[in-house]
């Protein structure tokens, strides 16, 4: 589904990704771990199409197409979803409006008509109930005055409504209490299916207790320095990131 080869990317003068390669197939869950500043979030932003990150080398193909050619909105309509580490507060834009606009943008791209307003609200309320979100959040400004946990739940709600083929969750677990973490994990697990792929970007092993990854990769200085199964996450937790850094430099 997603094929990244020798990706090099920089923001301004600083090179952040330095030859990263990763292959993700449909049905798989990948966890990307690494210390702060290793390039985890940059990878997520580059896949989503942030224009501040310049791709200087390498290729990213998505379902056989050159992903780097596409604008962020085109990537979204093709089924890529980025759950933000810091979801943006947009006062004055109604949460329900954004959800509907997002779903309709995708439907239009697929040659479908606009979603039925009644069905849409019903579905949104169902998804919110499973995430433990008060339906009142639909009528609030996007993330406006939401707590950290509410913002992350709201990201998962958007993901659930958009049903992406490739979901990248950037530190969705950070700053969550255990209830919120469980709700978020349940939302992610509900999305797991043979035709979807999920990339979890995380600093800690904690989320992986609830969402079991097929592969774990460790990022250091803009490259994947080690890959393995879920046991790698546990090993990492035990030995700390210094261990991989040393391994990378060796």
């Amino acid at each position: 589904m997603l094929e990244i080869k020798n990706l090099k990317s920089r923001i301004g003068d600083s090179e952040i990704l330095r030859g990263l390669s990763l292959s993700v197939k449909a049905g798989e869950v990948h966890a990307i771990m690494g210390p702060n500043g290793s390039g985890k979030s940059t990878l997520a932003q580059v896949i989503a199409g942030h224009e501040d990150y310049e791709v200087v080398d390498g290729t990213v193909t998505y379902n056989g197409h050159d992903l780097l050619e596409l604008a962020p909105e085109e990537r979204a309509r093709e089924g890529i979803f980025l759950g933000f580490q810091y979801p943006v507060e947009i006062p004055g834009v109604n949460n329900a409006y954004l959800l509907k606009a997002a779903v309709n943008a995708k439907r239009k791209h697929q040659g479908l008509g606009e979603v039925d307003a009644f069905e849409f609200l019903k579905l949104a309320r169902e998804k919110m109930a499973t995430l433990g979100m008060d339906p009142k959040f639909l009528n609030r400004g996007v993330n406006e005055g939401f707590s950290g946990g509410e913002k992350k739940r709201n990201e998962i709600l958007q993901m659930a409504m958009l049903e992406p083929r490739l979901a990248i969750l950037d530190e969705t677990d950070s700053g969550l209490d255990i209830d919120a973490l469980k709700a978020v994990a349940a939302g992610v697990n509900a999305l797991r299916s043979p035709d979807r792929a999920i990339i979890l970007v995380t600093h800690y092993q904690r989320l992986l207790d609830y969402v079991e990854p097929d592969y774990v990769h460790v990022l250091s200085q803009g490259r994947i320095v080690r890959s393995g199964d879920k046991s790698l996450a546990l090993e990492l937790e035990e030995k700390g990131y210094e261990w991989v850094r040393e391994a990378a430099n060796a």
């Binding site: 989503a48 199409g49 942030h50 224009e51 604008a71 962020p72 909105e73 990537r75 979204a76 309509r77 979803f81 980025l82 933000f84 979801p87 943006v88 947009i90 006062p91 004055g92 834009v93 409006y97 954004l98 606009a101 997002a102 943008a105 995708k106 791209h109 400004g141 958007q158 958009l162």
Partner: peptide, 27 residues
């Protein structure tokens, strides 16, 4: 940042701009 956020949700640049300017005027 808000513009990019909206675009990652599938809204094209013009639609996203419209949404944000409306929000500014809405109050």
């Amino acid at each position: 940042t808000a513009l990019f956020y909206l675009r990652t949700r599938g809204l094209d640049k013009r639609h996203a701009t419209q949404v944000l300017t409306h929000a500014f005027a809405a109050d």
